[in-house]
């Protein structure tokens, strides 16, 4: 990563942070409904890993905390915001919402709301890649608590058994909603759990994008070179509640303070400043531009977009005019 890349990544992470914070406000203003899971604190995970992969080319899938992954894959942030606003111009035409962002043309294959649900889908996409002979890989981002689902173990087993090109990225933020990992999970270090499936793994600091990037590079190369699956555990922390309805009362203030000092954006910013690549003024300017872009383009677009038509309520349930429903063309 050269200085220009780092500056670009700083801007992308800052954008993601401000985007999510603006979602929070829009939720309070009741512009966004439903469950809203935000990503502040964890930015270096998605950006570090996807920077090492080929977004738009590789297939990416995740859970409900999905806005930022979609954007890094190439989804238009305007469409993501419009989706949160439930608009027809949204990435899923207002039918999905925050937990179901999809942008298939950029191979962002969705946000899914069932904890553990994407594991087998990711392995299936890897099976598809292998059958078709492409050089893509399948990347599955999920939380630490998802690893207690049966699908985790079943999917790892099949991925290893059939040597499929899938990278599992565990965003370990130490909590599944309000349950701390040591209260739900016998083996706390997630990367150790995959040794039962003979899958190589690593654990790195998920707050430092350079470390994430370096580890992801190894992981991505391993998977892309046809050596089978890989598991990467990123130690991270979410700065907000699990979702908007969460008061965060279950976390010790000291713990929050400690992780607050390890903000991935600040870590990268200060490193760039120290190296003389960036000034505080540059950073402030960057921030102003980001905020302006979000307010005057993204929010504006979402606000002004039309609602889906009520007449189209039943569209997208089944394929339209599929000839085999009538017994083929014959």
């Amino acid at each position: 990563m050269n200085a220009a890349d780092k500056k670009r990544l700083l801007r992308e992470m800052l954008f993601a942070r401000r985007f999510e914070e603006r979602c929070y406000e829009a939720y309070v203003e009741r512009k966004i409904g439903g469950f809203l899971h935000l990503y502040p604190g964890e930015e270096a995970c998605a950006f570090g890993v996807l920077e090492a992969a080929r977004p738009g080319h590789d297939y990416v899938i995740t859970g409900y905390r999905d806005h930022v992954h979609a954007i890094k894959c190439g989804a238009d942030p305007k469409e993501v915001m419009a989706e949160l606003f439930g608009k027809e111009t949204g990435s899923s035409r207002g039918r999905g919402g925050s937990m179901h962002i999809f942008d298939v043309k950029h191979r962002f294959m969705g946000g899914y709301a069932l904890v553990g649900g994407p594991f087998p889908l990711a392995v299936g996409m890897a099976k598809g890649i292998k059958m078709k002979g492409g050089d893509e890989i399948s990347i599955c981002f999920l939380g630490d608590a998802a690893n207690n689902q049966g699908t985790f173990h079943e999917s790892l087993n099949m991925a290893a058994l059939w040597e499929l090109p899938v990278l599992f990225v565990c965003e370990n933020n130490l909590y599944g909603i309000g349950t701390r990992i040591d209260r739900s999970t016998a083996v706390i270090e997630q990367y150790k759990r995959v040794c039962g499936y003979n899958i190589p793994s690593a654990q790195v600091d998920g707050q430092d994008i350079e470390q994430v990037y370096a580890a992801a590079k190894i992981a991505v190369d391993h998977v892309r070179s046809g050596k089978g699956p890989y598991f990467l555990e990123l130690m991270t922390y979410r700065y907000r509640g699990h979702s908007m309805s969460d008061s965060n009362a279950y976390r010790a203030k000291e713990e929050e303070r400690m992780w607050g000092k390890r903000d991935p954006i600040i870590i990268l910013r200060d490193r760039l400043i120290e190296a003389g690549e960036l000034s505080m003024d540059d950073y402030k300017k960057m921030d102003d531009e980001v905020l302006d872009h979000i307010e005057n383009e993204i929010i504006k677009f979402a606000e002004e977009s039309p609602e889906p038509k009520l007449e189209e309520l039943e569209k997208y349930v089944l394929a339209e005019n599929d000839p085999y429903v009538r017994g083929g063309m014959h």
């Binding site: 087998p120 889908l121 598809g128 699908t151």
Partner: peptide, 21 residues
């Protein structure tokens, strides 16, 4: 021949179908 993992091998098939399998 799949392992005895009904939910996940079904999910695997679904994921593969996203790519046209």
């Amino acid at each position: 021949d799949t392992p005895i993992s009904e939910n996940s091998y079904t999910g695997l098939g679904i994921g593969a179908s996203f790519l046209g399998i």
